[in-house]
Design a protein around this nucleic acid. Structure first.
Lengths: 471, 471
DNA sequence: GGGTATTTGTCCGTATGTATG
DNA sequence: TCATACATACGGACAAATACC
């Protein structure tokens, strides 16, 4: 029994029962009340509208006689199924189909953003969810710490230390629903009066969010080792957003020397900060694991951002910020104005997921799986070695294919599309302020979502698309 | 087996094994590696560090001889339990206890923000969660619509229409993790260059969030019918944030006439908007249900905000925004820069919770429960009728007790504290810009979290605290 | 799983105001 | 002016069905 919010006018000449009648009739005609739906009982509606029951009954009676309602004794009044109304209903549908626009029938979509969800330990997650819901119950549904559950932040700080060399205490960890939200928090913590330097090309999404948040932005070109620190210094920026462990989209792993230069830049002047986005550091195939920039920071200048969206699932919207001590006080003040955005249930489930060792096992497993996909894909693409140059292959879940035969990015994508393969243009990741720069013809090839079999086939199709000389 | 992110310096004079050794020792001393924890096997660590196994073994050997590690043959290396270290560990604890500050042993806490979680249908929620995790699986863990799941938005729009008279289509509904986040989105949609008028007193939290987001703010006094529209017009504001169905903290229900005045104000000039916060409209004990302001809006001037934090549980961080059509285009543009912040699992569970009728049943049940608590509390407090005047008792889950015997707010709270009852000062809700205004001596009494028995006792204690003449 | 309190549509008696003759 | 009929609105009683404990 739903409550109907009808506003009655006792003084109007129109009788009360008729006002009720026409309101409900209108709703049924507009599809707001669906066939089969139950109406409030005459008692409850009369109580909530503060009218007599017979008034409501009169209205219902009328609707029954007109075929809109039917009454089921001892059960309630229900909306009838009326044929003529269905056309009205379907008239509303097209709005929804906006979601399913541009239906190119891709055979394989090499998106660099997807992840492998085939091998997610669904059963474990369900089991943990069940346990969490059984054990904590009432406490779990109460408001929690705005920075996130202490236990989870502790688990994350320990994990970050051991896997990424991040040096932090749980107090420095702040959880949020996704990177976007954390960047908003950062805007609140740092204030908006900053010039933020971003790598060019960079993670466009973060760029847009910064823009939206009112930051001033500047693009600093990257060379083969990452952001060029001299140009960063020249830009006048006081905050630099970098992805040292696996630059997106280029896949550059920043060597130690450049990292130290960055840290030096940050320390040189009061108020400078580095934002280290460590978005897919979990996956790495070659070379030593380079610990996070944050771990080498001696002057409290690095703000570390990580996420579980890549390593677990995009729908688990839990990201984390590790703040330097120098920002903790400001964060405290800014945060008391916000409540935690992360589902507490998800937090607790994730907490157990990490603590019980499932996260490590999952990571190890995914490393193996992505590693195999990586190897297979790379191996098959070797056939194109004269035509494309693969870079960024040491980590992450995508490759960068640069064309050395003069084929333009646009043509490369068109040729792939002919084979029903979707690849992603590098040019998309250029930032607006760096529009003038030259941009090499290259595409991104994500291999996370496809199976090994599919990757092999996708590679074949790419060879067919790009293997011939320039048309 | 965790991965250790040790950064080795092959060129340094310090031998490799010693670098490994001191890193791990450091970790154990700092409590980052806990007693009993297993270290990576010598094989895996040597592989990931790209050093020889004997180098790792040498480091482990050293640690074993110093008592930090123990080796369990054919199983692994484990961190030893060392007595001296516990003191270090506990030395870190006090930081955490910050959460449990100001430990006044309250007997009853009449917080106006709490809700009754005793009667939440945990089993239903668990069952639905289980079904959702079983049915949707892979799809559920993928990234969803940034505005929220279509099905849930559809269910919400239908509910809002029927229960609150809100006129909207699912496209207008945007889900977000809590009101704070939605207000941030609004800032992105509307831009920050606005003067926002808030009721005085108002919901302080929202005030702070607006402030943080960079809005200019002004306070408009309320009379017994809500925000005074003439003063609003005089303030020069172009956005007004109002709570017509149950003003917080005063509990005023805005009569239709005032609502129409507000709508008229909004329509008078291009670019004006009303933000209607309908935070606890679900609970109402007297008088007709007045439909939401939004339903009476003919000029697309009302932005409606609602939440499930009050009606279901604070931990279910799902709130919703209903945007007028005039803002949809701007929202589309702003939103594409953000991802949804709401756990997709929670969204699906809530969707089923609403669709299967559990939400209505729960609301009906809570209405009954709160209604009984409301009646009992009010009845018992009648003994104080000469001393305090109760207002705001027609809706919501808190009352406002105004002192008519000259007792100051401060003293009233102190006297309640003597009886170990926590009540909340009305003065807390005044906004900064309205500091000069006179503020009546009054306190907020929330009755949601206490049982009927407890409420009766709490009322007794309040009578003891306030029943005597002014000391 | 079973008993009870609550809720349900239905039926009916009543009151008030208005129109009709 | 009075009687009658009708429209509108209110609330109590009944038995079946359901929800809750």
């Amino acid at each position: 029994m739903r409550e109907l919010a009808i506003s009655l006018n006792t003084e109007a000449s129109e009788p009360l029962y008729e006002q009720i009648y026409s309101y409900i009739k209108h709703d049924i005609q507009k599809g707001q009340l669906l066939p089969g739906e139950r109406l409030p009982s005459s008692r409850s509606l009369s109580a909530s509208l503060e009218v007599s029951r017979s008034t409501v009954e009169l209205a219902y009676e009328q609707l029954i006689s007109e075929g809109y309602l039917e009454s089921v004794p001892w059960k309630g009044y229900y909306v009838c199924r009326i044929e003529g109304l269905y056309s009205l209903d379907t008239g509303c549908r097209p709005v929804r189909s906006r979601q399913e626009k541009e239906q190119v029938p891709w055979k394989y979509d090499l998106t660099p953003n997807g992840i492998d969800l085939e091998h997610f330990p669904y059963d474990v997650w369900r089991k943990l969810t069940r346990n969490v819901l059984l054990d904590d119950r009432k406490e779990l549904f109460q408001q929690g710490d705005p920075r996130g559950e202490w236990e989870l932040r502790e688990a994350i700080s320990r994990y970050l230390h051991q896997a990424r060399g991040v040096i932090c205490r749980p107090e420095q960890v702040i959880l949020g629903a996704g990177n976007d939200y954390l960047l908003m928090l950062l805007a609140a913590i740092l204030g908006r009066k900053h010039l933020v330097a971003m790598e060019s090309p960079t993670y466009k999404h973060a760029y847009r969010v910064f823009e939206q948040l009112g930051f001033l932005l500047t693009a600093v070109p990257v060379d083969s080792r990452g952001m060029q620190v001299d140009m960063l210094a020249a830009s006048g920026a006081d905050i630099a957003y970098v992805m040292p462990s696996h630059q997106y989209p280029l896949g550059i792993v920043m060597p130690i020397k450049r990292r130290l230069e960055l840290l030096k830049w940050a320390s040189e002047k009061q108020g400078r900060y580095l934002i280290e986005d460590d978005y897919d550091s979990e996956f790495r195939y070659k070379g030593k694991p380079i610990p996070a920039l944050q771990g080498a920071d001696r002057d409290d200048r690095v703000i570390y951002i990580g996420t579980f969206s890549k390593s677990i699932a995009p729908a688990i919207r839990i990201s984390y910020l590790v703040l330097p001590d120098s920002l903790l006080a400001q964060a405290e003040e800014a945060l008391c104005r916000f409540s935690s955005t992360v589902s507490r249930i998800d937090q607790m489930v994730l907490n157990h997921f990490i603590r019980d060792g499932y996260y490590e096992r999952h990571l190890n497993r995914m490393r193996r799986i992505y590693g195999r996909k990586h190897d297979i894909f790379l191996e098959r693409l070797k056939e194109l070695s004269g035509i494309i140059k693969i870079t960024g292959e040491n980590a992450g879940v995508h490759l960068l294919a640069e064309f050395r035969n003069g084929v333009s990015e646009k043509e490369a994508i068109a040729r792939a599309e002919e084979q029903k393969i979707r690849v992603y243009p590098l040019s998309e990741y250029r930032t607006e302020t760096a529009e003038g720069q030259k941009c090499k013809a290259a595409v991104l090839l994500g291999y996370a979502t496809l199976t090994e079999q599919e990757l092999s086939e996708a590679a074949d199709l790419l060879i067919r698309a790009w293997g011939t000389a320039k048309t």
